[in-house]
Design a protein around this nucleic acid. Structure first.
Length: 226
DNA sequence: TGCCAGGCCGGGT
DNA sequence: ACCCGGCATGGC
């Protein structure tokens, strides 16, 4: 049996060869990435694009403007992203954190020790593990692997992780078997999302053109996942 | 048309 | 420590 690291690397190479470089995260600034990370929670990215466009149009896509903005007005601007009332609250929680602790400057926030910052982000109501790791990786260029529903679905279907694996268990599977390179973590997660949004959509079990099809033939199985 | 999308929280067992 | 309902719009 091959080592998990060999399998993961081959998966990554196949995906990259199939889709090409994806240049994530789709956002111009660290702050825009942080906002997008909250808005895309359980939500189609297309709906998030509209919301971010609204904020840009009103010149509100910066921490100080959002800090001043009334929550109910923010809610209406981001309505297209769904769950708009809770997300307005969550964005407020995030912007309050950034302004009150780091003068509204992400550059100061990212000077924190990586693990400390992750804990602080997780303490914000509305920031869970995936959102925190997305912020750390894509806005802060910190080597945290992002686990999302596509990752869980695709990798458990291929029996590389157990169905019941927790977020941390899945994340450990990647971080223990990959070099801790920001570029690799960035591109790998983007490739997984692309795979989930296209070929592996709708839980299609056949995956005839899937870049992961080689897994079926080689009987890969990872032991000891929980 | 109904189902799903790059989660997370809070209350109940 | 899990489990589950709630949150909501827009695209196909």
């Amino acid at each position: 049996m091959k080592q998990a690291r060999d399998i993961l690397l081959k998966i990554y190479q196949n995906l990259y060869h199939h889709f090409g470089p994806l240049h994530w995260w789709p956002g111009d600034t660290p702050w825009e990435i942080m906002v997008g990370a909250v808005l895309t929670q359980n939500t189609n990215w297309n709906n998030v694009v509209k919301a971010i466009h609204n904020l840009k149009r009103e010149n509100l896509l910066n921490p100080f403007a959002l800090y001043q903005l009334e929550e109910s007005k923010l809610a209406l601007l981001i309505k297209s992203s769904g769950y708009y009332k809770v997300k307005a609250r969550r964005l407020k929680n995030l912007v309050n954190f950034l302004v009150e602790k780091y003068q509204g400057k992400e550059s100061l926030m990212f000077k924190e020790k990586d693990e400390d910052l992750r804990e602080k982000l997780l303490s914000i109501k509305g920031i869970g593990p995936e959102t925190a790791d997305s912020i750390l990786l894509y806005a802060g260029n910190k080597p945290f692997f992002v686990v999302d529903s596509y990752t869980r679905r695709i990798f458990s279907r291929h029996k590389l992780i157990s169905q019941a694996a927790t977020y941390k268990q899945i994340q450990d599977f990647f971080t223990q078997n990959l070099d801790h390179e920001v570029k690799l973590f960035n591109e790998f997660h983007a490739q997984i999302v692309m795979l989930g949004k296209t070929i592996c959509k709708n839980n299609n079990p056949s995956c005839q053109v899937c870049p992961l099809k080689f897994l079926e033939e080689e009987k890969y199985l990872i032991k000891g996942n929980n």
